[in-house]
Lab assay of single mutants.
Amino acid sequence: DRHTIHIGDITIHLEGFSEEELKLAEELIKRGIHLEEVKRILEELYR
């Protein structure tokens, strides 16, 4: 499954994450956390 996060003019595609995980990812990215770090956090929390 493919999910999309929109932040301003930026569109990020993250596959294989639930709606809850994507909301967390979006919040972290909006707070300035680097995408690679966001992915690592999600994997630690949900895998």
Rank of each mutant, 00 (worst) to 15 (best):
E19R: 05
E20V: 10
G16C: 07
E20D: 10
E20M: 10
K30P: 01
R47I: 15
D1V: 07
I7C: 11
I41W: 08
H34T: 15
D9L: 09
R31K: 09
G16A: 10
L42C: 00
E21V: 15
E21R: 07
E36A: 10
D9W: 01
H13G: 08
T11M: 09
E43V: 01
H3A: 10
T11R: 07
L42D: 00
I10K: 12
L45N: 06
T11Q: 12
I29N: 02
K30E: 05
L22K: 11
R2T: 15
R47K: 15
S18I: 05
E37L: 13
E27G: 07
L24C: 08
I7Q: 05
T11L: 05
I33S: 05
I41R: 02
E15M: 10
L22G: 05
Y46R: 15
E43C: 02
I33F: 11
L35R: 04
H3S: 10
E21A: 15
I7N: 07
H3W: 01
S18Q: 06
I10V: 15
I29E: 01
E37P: 01
D1C: 13
E19Y: 13
E43M: 02
I5A: 03
E44S: 00
K39I: 14
G8Q: 07
E20A: 06
V38F: 04
R40H: 05
E43Q: 02
K23C: 03
G32S: 07
A25I: 13
G8M: 02
L45C: 12
E37C: 01
T11V: 09
R47W: 03
E19A: 12
K23T: 09
H13T: 14
Y46E: 15
E36F: 01
E21D: 09
I7E: 07
E21M: 15
E26R: 09
S18C: 14
L24R: 04
E43A: 02
G16M: 07
D1H: 10
K23A: 11
H34S: 15
I5S: 06
I29Q: 02
A25D: 00
E20T: 15
L45I: 15
E36R: 05
E20P: 09
H34W: 06
K30W: 04
I7P: 06
L24K: 06
L24S: 03
I7M: 13
L45G: 09
E27V: 10
L42N: 00
L42K: 00
A25F: 13
I7R: 04
H3M: 10
H13K: 11
D1I: 13
G32V: 08
L45R: 05
K39M: 15
G32W: 07
H13P: 03
E43T: 01
F17L: 09
G8C: 10
I7A: 13
H3V: 14
R40V: 04
D1G: 12
D9F: 02
G32I: 14
G8R: 03
R40F: 01
H3P: 08
E36N: 08
R47G: 15
D1Q: 06
T4D: 11
I33E: 03
K30N: 14
G16Q: 04
E43N: 03
H3D: 10
L45V: 05
R2K: 15
E15G: 11
A25V: 13
E27W: 03
L14D: 01
I5W: 00
D1Y: 00
H34Q: 13
G32L: 10
